[in-house]
Amino acid sequence: MAKKITNNIRRLRFEHNEMTQQMLADVVQVSRQTIVAIEKDKYSPSLEVAFKIAAHFQLPVDAVFSYQ
């Protein structure tokens, strides 16, 4: 089976004071729809956005995203 990039963003948002998708979108400077697509594994973000998301949650990238 083909591997794909998955993520824990949804869980991390809730662990960070129930942060909304819009708030995260504003932090990483993308649209809310892009955050929705990333959370549903419908879009793999660029390295830059992946690092921005990880930096916001103060975690390494591989704690937010995984390739499986």
Binding site: Q29, V30, S31, Q33, T34, A37, Y43, P45, S46, E48
Partner: peptide
């Protein structure tokens, strides 16, 4: 005034 992001 929304600008395209990387997905767009």
């Amino acid at each position: 005034n929304y600008d395209q992001d990387e997905r767009d």
